[in-house]
Simulated scan of single mutants.
Amino acid sequence: MTEPLLALTWTDHVTGRQGHVVVDRLVRGVSSGGLRMREGCTLDEVRGLARGMTMKEALHYNPDGKYIPLGGAKGGIDCDPRDPRAYGVLVRFLRAVRPYIEAMWTTGEDLGLTQDTVDRAAAEAGLVSCVQAVYRLLDDEVTARRRLTDAFAVEVDGIGLDELAGGCGVAESVLVALDRAGAARTGTRVSVQGLGTMGGATARFLARAGLRIVAVADVKGTIANPAGLDVEALLAARDAYGSVDRAALGPGDRELPGDAWLSADADVLVPAAVSYAVDTANQAAITARWIVEAANMPVLPEAEELLARRGVTVLPDVVVNSGTNAWWWWTLFGDIGADADEAFAHIRRSMRELTGLTLARAEADGTTPRAAAHAIAADRLPVIADRFGRYA
Rank of each mutant, 00 (worst) to 15 (best):
D267F: 00
D80S: 14
Q193M: 14
Q283V: 10
F388D: 07
R17W: 08
T42Y: 02
P226D: 12
R309Q: 15
L269I: 11
I77R: 11
D218I: 09
D230L: 05
A385E: 15
L315I: 02
E57S: 14
E172F: 03
T149V: 09
V131R: 15
M297L: 10
G52T: 11
L148P: 04
M53T: 05
I336M: 08
L148W: 12
G242V: 07
H20P: 02
V30F: 01
W330V: 06
H60I: 08
A345H: 15
L211A: 03
V312D: 09
D259C: 05
E141L: 05
R309T: 10
R189D: 06
A360M: 09
V97A: 08
L249W: 10
S322I: 04
A371I: 06
R92L: 06
R370K: 12
A247Y: 05
L164H: 00
L59Q: 04
V46R: 02
P69M: 01
N282M: 05
C41Y: 10
L164Q: 07
V278N: 05
V97L: 14
T202D: 04
F344K: 07
T197C: 09
A236W: 03
V244E: 08
L164S: 01
A340Y: 10
V174T: 01
A96D: 12
R95P: 05
A385W: 11
P4Y: 03
E353P: 11
A260E: 13
A264M: 09
G65V: 08
V319T: 05
G72V: 03
V118K: 03
G228D: 08
L111D: 00
M37T: 00
V170Q: 03
E232G: 12
H13K: 13
A285S: 13
E172G: 06
V23N: 04
V214L: 13
R145P: 05
S243R: 15
T42D: 01
L26V: 07
R348E: 13
T143F: 08
L195N: 00
D239L: 08
D335G: 06
G182I: 02
E304A: 14
R147K: 09
R36M: 00
E141I: 11
V134C: 11
R17E: 12
A122Q: 09
G166D: 09
A122G: 00
L206V: 06
Y391Q: 12
Q193N: 14
T54E: 00
T222Q: 04
